[in-house]
């Protein structure tokens, strides 16, 4: 935060936050790869693993508080995402992956509103990209394994019951949308939701600080107070968006898996 405050105070006018606020120097040396987002991701992975381990250790019929919390999360992913989107026949095998995915993305996102951490690691495109590529590999692999390479792409590009001239237009669009657009939109949706949300919070906080401290006067104090208050409201809204985006990413992954496994009608 101190870097950002310095950035806003160095010019004579207000310097609005931009993509440069998403680039961090290395923690131990300025050029190293070990930056704040990497640290957040490592901590998030450890946190998810340790909490689920503690929740599942000594599982009993009458659950403890920790076991209850873990089972609620797991049950939510199983009932509302996996079984709904993939189906009762195949859904159960993907619940562990989907539950891990959901909690990992949620922790990465929520880091954006935790005081003193305050950076959503998933606003750096590399992390969502890897998760989207994993989803891409899974659904293509499952589809090809279930239907065979030729039949999978034939069913995808040439669905039955359509007059043949439409295929000229439909086949490339379907191929493009399934193989290229899906992983791309998965990545971009998560990344830029977090990017835009973090940018808006920065704008309200830094703008409020500039109005209160540097601009001053009656106008500055009133507008700055409104801006700081708005940043508090927006922080809660961001928390909602962060959980929603974790849900959306997991739901779409599950829907793509379900689509690959579906029988052709």
């Amino acid at each position: 935060m101190s870097i950002l405050l310095a950035a806003s105070a160095e010019g004579d006018g207000f310097v609005s936050p931009g993509p440069k606020d998403f680039e961090f120097p290395g923690i131990f040396s300025p050029d190293s790869w070990f930056t704040k987002p990497i640290l957040i991701v490592i901590v998030a992975a450890l946190l998810v693993g340790v909490l689920f381990y503690l929740a599942a250790r000594r599982a009993s019929v009458v659950p403890s508080k920790g076991q209850f919390a873990g089972e609620s999360l797991y049950g939510f992913v199983r009932n509302d995402i996996a079984l709904d989107a993939i189906g009762h026949r195949d859904g159960m095998r993907f619940v562990p992956y989907l539950a891990t995915l959901f909690s990992f993305i949620a922790v990465m996102n929520i880091a954006g509103i935790i005081p003193l951490v305050q950076f959503p690691a998933s606003s750096r495109i590399a992390f969502p990209l890897v998760l989207a590529v994993i989803a891409w590999v899974i659904y293509l692999y499952l589809g090809i394994k279930k239907h065979g390479f030729v039949k999978y792409f034939k069913d995808m590009m040439f669905p039955a019951g359509i007059p043949w001239p439409v295929y000229i237009l439909l086949a490339p669009i379907e191929f493009f949308s399934t193989v290229i657009v899906r992983p791309l939109t998965l990545t971009l949706r998560l990344t830029f939701n977090m990017f835009a949300g973090h940018l808006v919070l920065l704008l309200f906080v830094l703008g409020g600080e500039y109005l209160l401290v540097d601009y001053g006067g009656a106008v500055g104090i009133v507008a700055g107070s409104v801006s700081i208050f708005g940043s508090i409201v927006l922080t809660f809204f961001e928390g909602f968006v962060q959980l929603l985006q974790a849900y959306v990413f997991t739901l779409l992954t599950a829907l793509y898996i379900g689509g690959a496994l579906a029988d052709e009608h």
Binding site: T185, L188, R189, T191, F192, N193, F195, A196, V248, L251, L252
Partner: peptide, 12 residues
């Protein structure tokens, strides 16, 4: 989520 993707691609 699908409609929002358009806005998100826009900001990207």
């Amino acid at each position: 989520a699908l409609a929002e993707a358009l806005a998100i691609i826009g900001i990207g």
